[in-house]
Design a protein around this nucleic acid. Structure first.
Length: 397
DNA sequence: CCTCCACTGGAAACCTAGGCTC
DNA sequence: GAGCCTAGGTTTCCAGTGGAGG
């Protein structure tokens, strides 16, 4: 049902009246105050404060599920600390290791925040990990910098690449004389300590802090505070906020999700040209948020992984590795893409399973061997929509 | 209880892209 | 520009295996 242009703009004009400051609901927004996290803020601040008079603070580990405020607390404290720093020796750096995705790029990101001489800048590729580390350490000791390094999703780095780099860091952290650096590690995964070398753990985990999930009550208070900034008065009924908090709370007290839900619900209300956010908007938003998550994951997949997923979608009743591989080869030929080996496809299936896009459970079928039972976990509609965006896969369907 | 399938998943070798040194 | 190096992705090789059917 194509709206006329005027209708769309008219609705947008009315809709804009719903928001007064949409940014307050964006994922990057760090509020002035983080309610229910005052304790954690104070503790982190106390741990890092020695940096202000030039001595090395303890390393620190922050634990908690997603959306419990770890990142926000760390960023807030580090930001304030730097603002208080008169000596200008404190350099802070925030890296999300899952987003920078490889060991090398994580180090490159760290190096970026340091004052490196022009000829020692880190290129996008080509250097060994060791060289990059050297440059970082040299820079710290020659400039006498006090680097405070926030490593978000540190568990990703460790599970994907091991703790070698962390070991180098913690050791250097104890040795680098004129400057120093401190690591603030953030992990979603409480078990991640098990994967660490005891030496790394004892250094990295000098101080630990656990962030409990928010209760539904707390989520409601957080949402109320944000809603006051983001929306015009009276646009979001309190029953709607309650629903929003309840839906996010029932998951696992994830504040980011709750806020996201509210923002998307607002946008839906705006697009529909209604004058307030309704419970229905929240429900629609919940669906949208979920499918966005899936679509983003799909889009960032390498071509071969997309092809494997596409193949899996041809089997509506699930399949196994052998049959899928045969079908995959055929599909690859049709698209003019070189087929990978079965071993690799088996690996890709495991990766896709980890992403939650399909289920690849290892099962034994007795005399008929052992294989992975493969079942697609996403809508074929969503899949073909995203696949159609890929120029290499055009001509599909 | 034993066999034996159809893979799994570890390990190492190989390939490619790109920076570095000379 | 030649020759070297590394990271990251892939291939090659293969020992290992859970459990239905004998």
């Amino acid at each position: 049902m194509p709206d006329s242009l005027d209708e769309i703009f008219q609705r947008a004009k009315q809709g804009r009246a719903l928001f007064q400051n949409r940014d307050a609901l964006s994922p990057d927004y760090v509020p002035e105050k983080l309610p229910f996290r005052e304790n954690q803020i104070r503790q982190v601040a106390q741990i890092l404060a020695p940096a202000l008079h030039g001595s090395k603070p303890s390393n620190l580990l922050l634990y908690g599920k997603t959306g419990t405020g770890k990142t926000a607390v760390a960023r807030l404290v580090v930001e304030r600390l730097q603002a208080q720093d008169a000596s200008k020796q404190i350099v802070t750096c925030y890296v999300n290791t899952r987003i920078s995705s490889t060991e090398y790029r994580t180090l490159a990101k760290i190096a970026e925040s340091l004052p490196l001489p022009e000829d020692k800048k880190i290129p996008g590729t080509g250097l060994s990990i060791g060289t990059v580390l050297d440059r970082i350490f040299t820079s710290i000791s020659t400039t006498k910098a006090h680097l405070i390094l926030v490593l978000d999703e540190i568990d990703y780095l460790v599970s994907a690449y091991g703790d070698d780099v962390l070991y180098q860091f913690t050791r250097a952290g104890e040795e680098v004389k004129p400057g120093f650096f401190t690591i603030v590690g953030i992990s979603n995964d409480l078990k991640f300590k098990d994967e660490l070398d005891p030496r790394v753990l004892s250094s990295l985990g000098e101080e630990e802090l656990v962030f409990p999930p928010y209760t539904t009550e707390e989520l409601r208070a957080i949402l109320t505070a944000r809603e006051k900034i983001a929306f015009k008065p009276g646009v979001v009924p309190s029953a709607v906020l309650n629903l929003c908090a309840a839906m996010a709370g029932s998951e696992h007290g994830d504040a980011r999700r709750a806020v996201d839900l509210l923002r998307v619900a607002g946008e839906i209300a705006e697009r529909e040209g209604i004058h307030e956010v309704t419970e229905d908007c929240i429900r629609k938003a919940s669906e949208r948020v979920e499918s966005n998550r899936v679509e983003d994951a799909l889009r960032s997949l390498p071509i071969q992984n997309k092809l494997v997923l596409l193949t899996a979608s041809k089997f509506s009743n699930g399949t196994n590795t052998g049959d899928l591989y045969l079908a995959y080869e055929g599909l690859a030929r049709r698209f003019g893409i070189d087929a990978l080996t079965q071993r690799r496809v088996s690996g890709i299936l495991a990766e896709l399973d980890l992403l939650g896009l399909l289920e690849a459970a290892v099962v034994s079928k007795g005399r008929r061997g052992r294989t992975k039972r493969i079942r697609l976990l996403i809508h074929t509609g969503t899949l073909s929509k995203v696949m159609a965006e890929d120029s290499q896969l055009l001509g599909l369907l």
